[in-house]
Design a protein around this nucleic acid. Structure first.
Lengths: 168, 168
DNA sequence: TATTGTTATACTCTATAACTATA
DNA sequence: TATAGTTATAGAGTATAACAATA
């Protein structure tokens, strides 16, 4: 009835707050890049030579494929990327970095490193590395089979049933 | 010129991916609550008895104060909270939980715990606790003086100058 | 004059559906 | 028939500005 034991790890609030702080810093760092942080991530993917389709790229960034079209339109207009026909599949396009895009990416990555250091600033260096590693593992794992939402829903319903039965 | 050393800790991508995964699970868990995850956080704040203004609450959640109005409208319509006049300041309103709101909050918190466990599932128990602790510290710290964006911008400009000078 | 909260309006972002061209 | 990509339209979410009440 009083304050409950400590339900308050409040992962949601912490994640959201850190995310907002990071987004504010990142938005500042990628200022001028069409599409903001996402535009940067497209540039980074193109630089890595990831030759997946636009669809695959969109899924990795967690956006709709139509959004990717607009994003690439803007990046192409800005002269940072080019869409070239894929010789293997004439439906698909390959996204490649222009020289200007490459230079811009290099510049932005430096700014982003600075921004990240500020966001993680409150933690000790080894703690920063721990956090990065944990988040990275979580992201790659959950990214792999991202449709576990169904499993969660099922388990919740099971619990609902279990709770509804005895205590009422 | 080749792949750079390892700029690829890619904090931004990892944070974004984990955030999306969590949001998907949380949206499911708070299904039915007006305003979704934010509605829940308002309930949780009200339950804690945080008697700050709507404005303060909005800032904590990182939303505009006008959004808070709509959010509270919906929560009040659903009979989960009430707006009562603040005796100390007749401009302000106090947000208090109704009995139904309290019950609903209890239910949702159980669902959220389950969802969180699934999101953090890929990590070992002690790693989960480490991640929670690190995020919490980061959130409270950065939340405290959240306007450090200016400091970041300044430092970036300094670096821009330093980079532009010698290598060009 | 500054601040809390509300309302109305406008804008941005995103998804939906329909279309073209390839496979 | 199914898929990659584009386009147009509609919708949700959000911010902006103007307002009333109070400090």
């Amino acid at each position: 009835m009083t304050t409950p034991p400590a339900v308050e790890s409040d992962l949601g609030w912490a994640l959201g707050t850190v995310m907002r702080t990071y987004m504010a810093a990142a938005n500042d760092a990628v200022d001028g890049i069409p599409g903001g942080p996402r535009g940067y991530q497209v540039l980074a993917a193109a630089n890595r030579g990831e030759r997946g389709s636009q669809l695959a790229l969109a899924q990795r960034l967690g956006v709709d494929r139509t959004v990717m079209t607009y994003l690439l339109d803007d990046l192409e207009t800005a002269g940072l990327v080019e869409r070239r026909p894929d010789p293997a599949d004439r439906r698909a396009r390959r996204v490649v970095l222009t020289e200007a895009g490459s230079a811009r990416l290099c510049d932005v990555e430096r700014r982003l490193r600075t921004a990240e250091e500020h966001v993680l600033g409150p933690l000790a260096p080894e703690e920063q590395e721990t956090l990065r590693a944990l988040l990275r593992r979580l992201a790659t794992r959950t990214g792999a089979h991202s449709a576990d939402v169904c499993a969660v829903a099922e388990e919740i319903q099971k619990q609902d049933a279990a709770v509804a039965r005895p205590s009422r």
